[in-house]
Amino acid sequence: MEAKPCDLMTAAPPYGHVLCSEKWTDSALVRALRGGGLKILFEKELHVADFLLPNKSSILYVSECDIIAGSSYKRKLVRYRNASNSFQELVLVERTGLSEQYFSALQRFVVLELGLPLLPVGGQAEASQLISQMIQADGRENIFRKSSCRLLDPLVLTLVQQIPGVGRVKALTLLQNFSSIQQLCSAAPEELEPMVGQTLAQQIHSFFH
Score class of each variant (00 low, 15 high):
residue 97 G to P: 01
residue 33 L to M: 12
residue 149 C to R: 15
residue 78 V to A: 06
residue 166 V to N: 03
residue 21 S to D: 13
residue 196 V to L: 07
residue 193 E to A: 04
residue 103 F to W: 03
residue 88 Q to H: 12
residue 78 V to Y: 06
residue 179 S to C: 12
residue 73 Y to Q: 00
residue 3 A to C: 11
residue 74 K to I: 11
residue 30 V to S: 09
residue 171 A to L: 01
residue 125 A to Y: 12
residue 139 G to N: 08
residue 143 I to T: 05
residue 32 A to F: 14
residue 24 W to A: 08
residue 94 E to Q: 01
residue 4 K to V: 02
residue 56 K to N: 03
residue 149 C to T: 14
residue 56 K to R: 13
residue 124 Q to A: 06
residue 145 R to P: 04
residue 93 V to E: 10
residue 170 K to S: 13
residue 174 L to K: 09
residue 208 F to D: 10
residue 152 L to M: 02
residue 14 P to I: 15
residue 56 K to A: 11
residue 173 T to C: 08
residue 139 G to E: 02
residue 119 L to G: 08
residue 19 L to Q: 12
residue 152 L to S: 00
residue 21 S to Q: 14
residue 6 C to T: 13
residue 30 V to C: 02
residue 95 R to V: 04
residue 48 V to L: 14
residue 56 K to Q: 02
residue 70 G to E: 09
residue 28 A to L: 15
residue 62 V to W: 13
residue 162 Q to T: 05
residue 53 L to P: 09
residue 94 E to A: 10
residue 125 A to K: 09
residue 195 M to N: 06
residue 174 L to C: 06
residue 142 N to L: 04
residue 105 A to H: 00
residue 167 G to P: 13
residue 39 K to M: 15
residue 70 G to Q: 06
residue 17 H to K: 00
residue 64 E to G: 11
residue 39 K to D: 15
residue 71 S to A: 06
residue 11 A to R: 11
residue 193 E to P: 07
residue 209 H to C: 11
residue 4 K to G: 08
residue 29 L to P: 11
residue 78 V to W: 02
residue 121 V to S: 01
residue 188 A to N: 13
residue 203 Q to T: 08
residue 122 G to W: 14
residue 172 L to Q: 03
residue 89 E to R: 11
residue 117 P to Q: 00
residue 46 L to E: 02
residue 5 P to K: 06
residue 170 K to V: 02
residue 141 E to K: 00
residue 88 Q to R: 11
residue 128 S to T: 07
residue 97 G to C: 10
residue 84 S to E: 05
residue 128 S to H: 03
residue 26 D to C: 15
residue 108 R to E: 04
residue 167 G to L: 07
residue 89 E to M: 12
residue 90 L to F: 12
residue 174 L to S: 00
residue 151 L to R: 08
residue 140 R to W: 04
residue 181 I to R: 02
residue 188 A to R: 08
residue 39 K to I: 14
residue 90 L to W: 02
residue 197 G to W: 00
residue 101 Q to C: 02
residue 25 T to S: 15
residue 6 C to R: 05
residue 144 F to L: 00
residue 174 L to H: 02
residue 189 P to N: 03
residue 142 N to G: 06
residue 38 L to I: 12
residue 32 A to M: 13
residue 152 L to A: 00
residue 118 L to M: 02
residue 120 P to A: 01
residue 131 I to C: 11
residue 96 T to G: 10
residue 137 A to T: 10
residue 135 I to Y: 12
residue 201 A to Y: 06
residue 107 Q to S: 01
residue 12 A to K: 11
residue 45 E to D: 14
residue 145 R to M: 07
residue 145 R to H: 07
residue 114 L to Y: 04
residue 41 L to Q: 13
residue 165 G to A: 03
residue 207 F to S: 08
residue 99 S to C: 11
residue 124 Q to I: 05
residue 54 P to F: 00
residue 148 S to Y: 04
residue 61 Y to L: 13
residue 91 V to T: 10
residue 90 L to N: 02
residue 200 L to R: 01
residue 201 A to H: 00
residue 135 I to N: 05
residue 192 L to V: 10
residue 156 V to P: 09
